[in-house]
Design a protein around this nucleic acid. Structure first.
Lengths: 213, 213
DNA sequence: GATAAAAGTGAGTGATCACTTCTATTCATG
DNA sequence: CATGAATAGAAGTGATCACTCACTTTTATC
C-alpha cells in the first residue's frame, strides 16, 4: 500500500510557469494583503516548491513586475476596446468607467496591488510599471476629454486635468468602499450613480456654477 | 577626554512616551511605506531602544491603534471646525475638502497609513479604528448634503450616498496623484479645480443631465 | 536510448522582525 | 536620603522572509 505522496510537479517551460505565477499572485491578492503574499504562498498555490520559483524569476520584485504588466495589458486593452466602441465621448467615458469597475470586481486584488506598489519607497521596476499604467490611463482620459471639448459636447472652459483626476478619484473612492464593505455587487451598483454626478459636473461647466456660490 | 557616548534616554511617564511614539510613526510614514515602519525604526526616532517601546505598548498593533486615534481626532476636529464656520452648506463642503487636503499636505503619511490599515486582512483594532474614521467622515458628509438638499441649495433628486462617495473619491484621487508625483504644492493647487467640477455636478441635478446624453 | 539542458526538490542561509527577559538607572515619595 | 516602582538598556528568542545550492527528475534532441 503506497502512501499517497504529494505528487512531483510537472516540468513546464519557463514562459508558462511565469504566467502561472503571475496569475497566482493576482488570485492571492483577492483575499490577502499584497505585503503578505510571500514567495512560499505563491509557490504553494502553483503546487510547486518555493525554490523552483526562483528558477523563473531572478527576484521577487520581478514577479511583481510581471503582475503589473499583466494588469496593464488587460486593463488598457479593455478600456480601449470599450471606449473605441462608442462614438459619443461621454458614452465612451462611461463605458470606460463601468468597464474599469467590472475589471476590479473580477480581480479584486488589482487595486490592492496597485496601491501597494505605489506605496513602496524604493524605485523598483514594478513601481515604475504601476506608475506608467496610471500615466497611460490619465493620457487616454485627457485625450477623450479634449476631444469632447473640441466637439462642443463639453464646455470650452472645462479643466481637463482636473476632470481626469476626478475620474481616477471616482475609481479610487469606489475601491475604498469596496475595501471597507467587501461587496463588489454594491460597488457595481454604486458606479453608475457616482458617474451621473461626475457627468453632470463636466457638462455644467465652471462659469455656470461660479455665480451660484 | 570622554568618548561621546550615546546619551541614556530620559525617563518619561508612559503617557508621554506613547504620545511620542504615535508622532514618531506619523512622521516616519511621511517618507516610508507603513509596512516598513518597524518597531526598531520607531524607537530609533524616539532615541530609545526597541525593547523600551514594549513597556508602553503591549503589541505593535496597539501602536497603530494609537496612530489611528490620533488621525481620527485631529482630522475630524479640523473638518468640524471648518464646516461649522460656514453657513452655506456648499461653502462648508468646500472648506472641509480644502481643510482635508491641507491636513494631508501637513501629514503626508496619513493616507498611506489609512490605506495600509484598510488593506490588512485580519480584524485588528487598528483596522476597526480606520474604518470607523471613514464611516464618521461619510456620515458628516451625508448630513451636510442632506441639509443642503432640504434647503433647496441642492436639487431634490440628488443621490446623497453617491455624492458622499464621490467626495471621498476626490480625496483619494488627489492622494494618488500625490503618491505618484510627491508634490504637495501641486495637490493643494489641484484641489479647488477638482472641487469646482464636483460642485457643478451636485448643483446640476440628475434630471438636468439625463436628457443631454 | 544516450545525453545534456531545463525544471523541480528539499534542505539550507543569513537577515530581519516582533516580542521577551534580565539587569541597570532614574525618580517620586516617605 | 533610603527605597521601591517605573522606565530604559542590552542581549537575547523563535519565527519568517527572500534567496541559494546540491542533487534528482523530466524532457527535448540526436
Amino acid at each position: 500500500m503506497k502512501t499517497p505522496m504529494t505528487q512531483r510537479a510537472k516540468h513546464l517551460p519557463s514562459d508558462e510557469r511565469r504566467a502561472e505565477a503571475v496569475e497566482a499572485v493576482v488570485e492571492l491578492a483577492a483575499s490577502a494583503n499584497p505585503e503578505e503574499i510571500t514567495t512560499s504562498a505563491i509557490a504553494a498555490r502553483m503546487k510547486l516548491t518555493q525554490g523552483a520559483l526562483f528558477r523563473h524569476f531572478p527576484t521577487k520584485d520581478a514577479i511583481w513586475q510581471g503582475v503589473m504588466e499583466w494588469v496593464s495589458e488587460r486593463l488598457l486593452a479593455r478600456i480601449d476596446r470599450l471606449a473605441g466602441a462608442e462614438s459619443d465621448p461621454l458614452a465612451a467615458l462611461k463605458a470606460m468607467f463601468l468597464g474599469h469597475v467590472d475589471f476590479i470586481a473580477e480581480h479584486p486584488g488589482v487595486p490592492r496591488m496597485m496601491v501597494g506598489q505605489l506605496q513602496n519607497t524604493g524605485e523598483t521596476p514594478a513601481k515604475r510599471m504601476a506608475r506608467a499604467l496610471v500615466e497611460n490611463y490619465a493620457n487616454r482620459l485627457r485625450r477623450i476629454l479634449s476631444a469632447a471639448r473640441a466637439e462642443g459636447v463639453l464646455p470650452p472652459d472645462l479643466d481637463i486635468d482636473a476632470a481626469a483626476a476626478l475620474f481616477l478619484g471616482m475609481i479610487q473612492g469606489l475601491v475604498m468602499q469596496h475595501l471597507i464593505h467587501g461587496d463588489s455587487a454594491r460597488m457595481r451598483a454604486d458606479a453608475p450613480r457616482v458617474f451621473a454626478i461626475y457627468r453632470a459636473g463636466l457638462v455644467a461647466g465652471a462659469t455656470a456654477v461660479e455665480g451660484r456660490t
